[in-house]
């Protein structure tokens, strides 16, 4: 591991200036559960890590009429222990509560999950399904990017030199909506998704018809994927096995996985179909309350 300096700025602008100064020789440190593993494995040679956990803005977690705002440094445990999030954003909980084990969840956050940009990031599909937006600060000011556009490839994001994710904003779900995320792993915990599916459904007031839906996939492409067609196909459709099965089959088509030690192309596509069906049913159940 290349020896690096530890910097703990207290403001976003300080953090931005350190990051800008070092270019790709410095990285933000949130929970460190990806960063420190990669630094130790010599994936990166860093001169500095910039701990974001002393920046109050990045540690705030707030929920109000407009939606949920998760600071980029907030660990998963704070998210899934939050009563209001449990009630209003069960899909977010599904993702946040399965990243690593308890020790990892004390540190790892959704911000780090997003910035790490692994195709398998378990936090990301639900964020996409909820239409979440990433807020970014950098040397040239602030900007917002839809979560589905945030990752541009494995371990690559839209972040430019000196830019920092500050928070993830999730709009308040309308009435009669529901969301869910699951993944397939060979073990029951502490594992990387072979395939993951997050869905968000908006039903009519009787819970009999889909008004809209968003389906997002993990581990079946170079980045987490928004399966737009699959979600759109449900708009206006009755809530029944047939609609669900056809959306699941479209989700399978949207998957473009590779074969590796964690699974084969066939297995992963098959899993996307199975899990999409299961998550749609779960989200429907939640939407109906």
């Amino acid at each position: 591991m290349h020896p690096f300096a530890y910097v703990a700025p207290k403001t976003v602008s300080e953090a931005v200036s350190v990051l800008a100064e070092h270019g790709d020789r410095a990285r933000p440190l949130a929970g460190g559960t990806d960063l420190l593993v990669k630094a130790r494995a010599n994936v990166w040679d860093l001169d500095a890590v910039v701990d974001v956990k002393n920046i109050p803005e990045l540690m705030s977690l707030s929920i109000n009429g407009a939606g949920l705002s998760i600071g980029a440094g907030v660990p998963c445990c704070q998210v899934y222990e939050h009563k209001d999030i449990q009630e209003q954003y069960p899909g977010i909980i599904d993702g946040a509560s399965i990243i690593g084990g308890i020790q990892i969840q004390s540190r790892a956050g959704l911000g780090g999950n997003l910035c790490n940009a692994a195709p398998s990031g378990d936090g990301i599909p639900a964020l996409i399904a909820y239409s979440a937006v990433a807020k970014i600060s950098g040397p040239n000011g602030n900007r917002e990017v839809a979560v589905e556009d945030f990752a541009t490839g494995p371990s690559r994001t839209v972040l430019e030199n000196g830019e920092l994710l500050t928070s993830i904003e999730i709009p308040k779900p309308a009435a009669n909506s529901g969301a869910a995320y699951t993944r397939f792993i060979p073990r029951n915990e502490m594992d990387i998704a072979v395939a993951g599916v997050g869905v968000f459904v908006q039903l009519d007031s009787e819970g009999k018809k889909f008004e809209s839906a968003r389906i997002a996939l993990a581990s079946v492409g170079p980045t987490p994927i928004l399966a737009q067609k699959a979600g759109d196909s449900l708009a206006g459709k009755p809530v029944n096995d047939e609609s669900i099965a056809s959306a699941a089959s479209l989700a399978k088509d949207a998957a473009s996985p590779i074969t590796d030690m964690r699974g084969t192309v066939d297995q992963r596509k098959h899993l996307v179909e199975v899990l999409t069906g299961r998550m749609l049913n779960q989200a429907i159940e939640r939407a109906r309350g």
Partner: peptide, 28 residues
């Protein structure tokens, strides 16, 4: 059920960490 040396063709082990070698945990 899960453990194996998953080898690349060139003789590298693909899963040389506890994460991917997948020994049972208490929950399994």
């Amino acid at each position: 059920l899960n453990e194996e040396y998953f080898m690349h063709e060139d003789g590298r082990m693909a899963n040389s960490s506890f994460l991917d070698y997948r020994m049972p945990t208490s929950l399994d």
